[in-house]
Design a protein around this nucleic acid. Structure first.
Length: 666
DNA sequence: CGGGACAACGTTTTT
DNA sequence: CGTTGTCCCG
């Protein structure tokens, strides 16, 4: 099976078509790769584990391997490249395309979730979704859980149940760590042990409702793919013959199900290449287990192991610091990065009195660097949590420094976007109770009970969303349900283009928007942007699944308005910065209690993950690394004043780290 | 039954 | 402090 390249890689267009159609060798692999990289690239067949330190040319190695396989006559479609983000795989294929030719764009790939979606869509009936399924994001899942939760809190006068988001966390953790619900509660939520049975019943009902309404949440995509492969030998064989070579990036961030999926897909030929770095494992919170890397050779006997230890990214002083940080890690593959890049200045640790002093220091330094000719787009400010950047964002706006922020809130998570999308969703998935409730609750005089009745009436008609038009509804006419009926009738017109449908929904939604939100002008801009995104799609289903699986970032607005060429500063969570690099990197909020977060401080495992996180952040820097913290911050959660730099930096020798105090008044 | 008013809670990271 | 859940009035 070949995946739908168009929907997976919509932005890629072949750079040039005058490549090398005959496939004769054009790349001098041994001149552009070091011996370890070359060994990985030219590895013939069978399982291969590449332990690739930060900046050691991991992406380069993968890219060249793809090119090499294609050059050796491997059908591009039969190469499956699973990576962590779509951005990463696009980038890789683009680079492979530049090396070789357009054939590289035919390579199959994407994230685990998008791959699962593509496979499951095709075999939906095999896993009990005769009519297909729709993917629900975290907040949809929470809405569904809330509906079930309510049945319990009404019926029983028990002590308080966990809130919906906590329930969703428990459920997801159970899947991703492959542990029963009960065990998750014992381990991580002991304060809810006393109502374990109720929680388990809610979980059971949640599973049931998802089936009834044809929903897959993020975890179900993986679970169902796993089931499909393990229960249907014929399908598994079909897939293993389609994908002769499997390449997995960021293997340290896979969890047990993902590792099993790779095993199931690899077939008898076991042409599996995984690339990762145990020191950069930062997704334990969603069940990632870096031990997958260590146990890979057990899973695949005869695995060849190659280590890439030469760093091509950072100058020596930066590497000295990052090596020191990670040396303290409890549990890791031993490797020590080295570089041949001489020179460079010491990384700096800057204390400012408060958050705003920190923001001003960073802003000043950025202006100074830009004055020296460093491009804004080659500078990044990294942080532990998205909200850590709020004050800096204000400061940057004040100084008119353009920036783009990655990570944190997604565009599609805001209520008004979800509202509009819900109207489109029900035309494709009429059993989507979550979306129907969203839509109906926007009407006046309609609450949960009325919504349920309307939903039942529509469902009984069995004629899709059009059921709204024919069903006998007892609804207050002041509700505005007639306008909704008109909209649904319009959307039923299959000849209407996707843009027209979007416009209709927006027209319908406008009065609701204005009535519900004081800041409707800002929200309207978002909605117009949503329409612009829609126009890139040819079919609604592709649009809808992408909005869940690859949602656009909230403040990435400018991308659409055509000023993509202007150089912008990068603001990013460390998680979203994975795999990237910049000339200068700032890490802000390196304050003990924030980074590591006070939440992690009692758990050795969590603390280790925080350490790896700061390691990932620091290793993004090529020339300059500046770490800052506010030295007097009152923390409401612990009711203490935080003033010490991150414990990962505090003991570092002065010949490795310049320490300065910044006073904006001086 | 809907909706508004009030109280309690807990606080990251992503698909 | 903003979100989430509950309670009670109309």
């Amino acid at each position: 099976m070949a995946m739908d390249q168009k929907s997976l890689f919509p932005d890629i267009t072949p750079a040039r078509d005058d490549g090398n159609p005959t496939g004769t060798q054009t790349i001098d692999y041994d001149k552009v790769l070091n011996p370890a990289q070359l060994a990985a690239v030219t590895h013939d067949a069978g399982p291969l584990l590449v332990i690739a330190g930060a900046g050691s040319g991991k992406t380069r190695t993968l890219t060249y391997r793809v090119a090499r396989l294609v050059e050796n006559g491997v059908e591009p479609k039969s190469i499956l490249l699973l990576s962590f983000t779509r951005k990463a795989s696009q980038e890789m294929l683009k680079r492979a395309g530049v090396l070789l030719d357009h054939r590289c764009y035919q390579v199959s790939g994407g994230t685990f979730h998008s791959f699962a979606n593509a496979v499951l869509k095709r075999y939906a009936a095999k896993i009990g979704f005769e009519k297909g399924f729709s993917i629900i994001d975290r907040s949809d899942a929470e809405d569904l859980i809330a509906m079930i939760r309510k049945e319990f809190s009404r019926a029983q006068d028990e002590r308080k149940l966990p809130r919906k988001s906590t329930l969703a966390n428990i459920f997801s953790r159970s899947i991703n760590k492959a542990m029963p619900i009960e065990e998750v509660i014992y381990d991580d939520y002991p304060h809810f042990e006393f109502q374990m049975e109720t929680i388990a019943r809610i979980w059971h009902l949640y599973q049931q409702r998802k089936r009834e309404h044809y929903f897959c949440d993020y975890d179900d995509l993986l679970v169902n793919l796993h089931r499909l492969l393990s229960e249907n030998e014929d399908i598994r064989q079909r897939l293993t013959t389609s994908y002769r070579h499997i390449l997995v990036d960021e293997y340290q961030d896979t969890n047990l199900i993902q590792a099993d999926i790779i095993s199931l897909l690899s077939g008898p030929q076991k042409n599996v290449m995984v690339v990762g770095d145990d020191s950069q494992s930062i997704y334990a919170f969603r069940g990632a287990n870096f031990k997958n890397i260590i146990t890979f050779p057990d899973r695949f006997p005869g695995t060849r192991i190659i280590k890439l230890e030469e760093n091509y990214r950072s100058l020596q002083p930066i590497l000295d610091l990052t090596n020191t940080i990670i040396d303290e890690a409890a549990d890791k593959y031993s490797k020590r990065l080295f570089t041949q890049r001489g020179g460079g200045v010491l990384p700096t640790l800057v204390a400012g009195i408060n958050e705003n002093a920190q923001s001003r220091y960073v802003t000043n330094e950025i202006m100074r660097l830009v004055g020296q000719g460093v491009a804004l787009q080659d500078i990044a400010v990294l942080f532990r949590a998205s909200f850590h950047a709020f004050d800096l964002e204000l400061e940057l706006t004040r100084k008119s420094i353009p920036f783009i922020k990655f990570g944190g809130f997604k565009f599609t998570e805001s209520a008004h976007i979800k509202d509009v999308i819900a109207h489109l969703k029900v035309t494709r998935a009429p059993k989507d109770k979550i979306s129907w409730f969203r839509i109906l609750l926007l009407l006046k005089k309609v609450g949960p009970k009325t919504a349920q009745n309307i939903y039942n009436a529509i469902d009984e008609q069995g004629m899709g969303a059009a059921g709204l038009l024919t069903a006998d509804l007892k609804v207050n006419t002041a509700s505005g349900i007639d306008r909704l009926k008109e909209l649904v009738a319009t959307l039923q017109d299959e000849t209407a283009s996707i843009q027209q449908k979007g416009e209709s929904v927006l027209q319908y939604y406008l009065p609701i928007l204005q009535q519900r939100y004081d800041d409707h002008p800002r929200r309207l801009k978002d909605l117009q942007q949503l329409l612009a995104i829609m126009e890139r799609y040819e079919n609604l289903d592709g649009f809808l699944s992408d909005m869940v699986l690859e949602p656009p970032n909230s403040s990435a607005d400018g991308q659409l308005t055509g000023d993509a060429q202007t150089s912008r500063l990068n603001l990013s969570t460390i998680h979203s910065a994975k795999g990237l690099e910049w000339h200068t990197v700032f890490i802000i909020w390196a304050l003990d209690g924030r980074f590591p977060s006070h939440h992690a401080i009692d758990s050795p495992d969590a603390l280790e993950e925080e350490r790896r996180l700061i390691y990932v952040a620091a290793t993004r820097a090529r020339e300059n690394l500046i770490i800052t913290y506010p030295s007097q911050v009152y923390d409401r959660a612990t009711q203490t004043v935080l003033y010490r730099p991150s414990r990962f930096l505090e003991g570092i020798a002065d010949d490795m780290l310049d320490r300065i105090y910044f006073n904006p008044m001086a």
